[in-house]
Amino acid sequence: MVRLSRFIRHIFVSTLAAGCVVASAPSHADDTNTWQSVKKAGVLRCGAAVAPPYVMRDAKTGEFSGFFADLCRNFGQNVLKVKVEFVDTTWDNIVAGLQSDKWDLSMALNDTPEREKAVAFSVPATESSVSLVYNKSNPKIPKGAHSLADIDKPGMTIAVMSGTSMDKAISAAIKQAQITRMPGSDETRLALMSKRADLLADESISNMLLTQGHPDWAVTIEPNPPLAEQGVSFAVRKDAPKADLAVLNDYLSAQVKSGAVNRLIKTSVQAMLVGNK
């Protein structure tokens, strides 16, 4: 994993536009060869739980964007030569839905030992760690707070998305502060902005977007050593053939090496910042 400071140095490169569609699709479980089954059905189904800028969903149109959505779309259209459809889900169900064949790929999952027992992971498309954001005018948080010890105190409330790797990481690290689990990123951000929560625990890139969008009040704590440093990958069903996983890995490795992933990330970051204005 690369730390956020290194990641930021590489994130802002040339742009690449993308778009996605939302729909449902038939079962693909009748064929043990994952991609053969997808080609037979003519559609690649991507399980999508919202986590900006990895996966985003327009509240008005229902359309998905974000750089993992872009990668899934490009893989389906350009490698498998099929249509791509996004299946809306939650982080609590992102693994179970894949196991029950509600979709073919789960997007933007942190590769954890616990999840590896249930699904198979691709190579990482990018890497992440967990940071915390707070309002610098909050009198409960000491000026210059920079560590978990500064905020892990009784009476402190931390908002986090339920069922995510951030939830697991912060739950293991926090001993005294109260953890408030919420269904999505919109709810956690609203809790912080409305002062119902003192801090927001999220992936570093997501929190970077929040602080860039609200530089007048938002401040980040980057724990040292990094908290929950992990690769962020696609997941397929555990019984997917190794040859099929290799096809996905070859595609992702080429996208990372060529700089395409960084270009997609920049597009997603810019879209987020524009949307937050």
Rank of each mutant, 00 (worst) to 15 (best):
R3D: 14
F7N: 06
I8G: 02
F12E: 09
T15V: 14
L16A: 09
A29R: 11
N33Y: 15
Q36V: 15
K39F: 03
G42C: 03
C46L: 10
V50Q: 01
P53S: 09
Y54A: 03
A59F: 06
G62K: 04
G62M: 05
A69N: 08
C72Y: 07
K83N: 08
V84K: 00
T90D: 07
N93K: 09
P113L: 13
P113M: 13
K117S: 14
P124S: 01
P124W: 03
A125L: 08
E127S: 14
I141Y: 02
L148E: 10
G155D: 09
I158Q: 00
T164P: 14
M166H: 14
Q176P: 08
S185L: 11
E187G: 10
L200D: 14
A201I: 07
S204H: 07
P215A: 02
I221H: 06
E222A: 13
E229V: 13
E229F: 12
Q230C: 08
V232F: 05
R237F: 01
D239Y: 06
D239I: 10
A243H: 11
A243V: 12
L248Q: 11
Q255E: 03
Q255Y: 00
Q255K: 07
G259D: 01
A260E: 11
V261I: 04
R263M: 03
V274T: 07
